[in-house]
Amino acid sequence: MAGRSRSPLAHALAREVGLVLVSVLLAAAVLLYVGIYLASQQRLPGSCELITTVNNTLPLIFAALAQALVVMTRGLDLSVGGMVDLTNALAAQYLGATPAHALAVAAGILLIGAVLGFLNGALVAWGRLQPILVTLATLSIFQGLAIWVLPQPGGSVPEFFSRWLANTTWPVGLLYTLAAALFWLAFRRTPLCIAVLAIGNDENAAAAHGISPVRTKLAAYTLGGTFSALAGLFLAATATAGDATTGNGYTLTSIVAVVLGGISLFGGRGSALGAILGAYVTTMIVNILFFAHIDPLYQAFYEGLFLVIAVVLAEGVGRLIRGRRAA
C-alpha cells in the first residue's frame, strides 16, 4: 500500500490514529445529539445546553486524566472512584464560607489527593504489587473514609465555589478543558512523560536506559491522585453538595473515556487529549440516550457495551495500522 514513502501528513495520521478516531466519534456524537435534540425540542441546543454539557463533563475529564496517567504506565486504577468520593465528601464538609478559606481547603484537598495517589504508587512500585489488586483494596479504604467524612449526603458547597468551577451562565468550563489540554501538551515534553510512556512500553528496556520505574510510577500515581481530587472538587461544585458514593461511577467511566480516547490499555501509547475528547463522547452518549427517551436505568448497560466495542475497535484498528506499517 502506501509503504515507506508516505507523506508526512499520512504519517502523522497513522501516529495519532486514536486522536483522529475519537475526534470523528465526538463529531458524530454531537451531530446525532443535535439531530435528536432538534427532533424532540423543535429548536437547536443553545448556550444553556453547552454550559450544562461542559460542566457535567469536567469531573470526568480530570478523572480520565488520572486514569490515563496510570494506564500509560501499564497499570489500571480502580480506586479513581474512591478518591473522587473522598475528595468530594471533604469538599462538601470543609470548604467553608469565605473564598480565602475555600481556596486553602481546596488546595489541601488536592494535596490529600496527591497523598492518596502516592500511596497507590508506593504499593505498586515499592511493594511490587499488581495495580488492579492494590487499587481494589485502596478503593475499599477510600470509600470507607469517604463515608466516615460524610455519613449522609449533604454538606454544603459555597455558592461562589460553584460559580468558579461550574458557572451556569458562562461556559468557563471550556477554559478548564483548554487548561487540561494545555497541561498535557506541556507535560508531553517533560522527561517524566517520556519515562511514563517508556516504562509502559517495556519496563526492563526503560530501566536499562537509566529510567527508574519506581520513581516514574510514584510520580504518575501521585499526579493521578491529584487529578482525581480535582475531579472530586469539580463534582462538588457541579452538584453543589456532597455525596460519599456518587463518585463510584467514575472508575468505570474514566476507563471508558481513556479507551475511547485511543489510549492503549497495554500501556506506553496514547495521548491524554484523547482522554479529554473521550470524556466528552461519554457525556454526549448520556445526552443522546436522554433525548432519545431511553430509560436512564439502562445507562450502565450502554456504558459497558460501548466500553467493549471501543476496546475491540481500538485494538482492531491499531493492529490494522501497525500491520500496514510493518508491511
Binding site: F266, A300, F301, E303, G304, L307, V308, V311, V312
Partner: peptide
C-alpha cells in the same frame, strides 16, 4: 476479542 479481563468483566458488570 483480546479485551483485557479487567475491562471485559468490568464492562459486563455495567451491562
Amino acid at each position: 476479542l483480546g479485551v483485557p479481563a479487567v475491562v471485559m468483566t468490568l464492562a459486563m458488570n455495567g451491562i
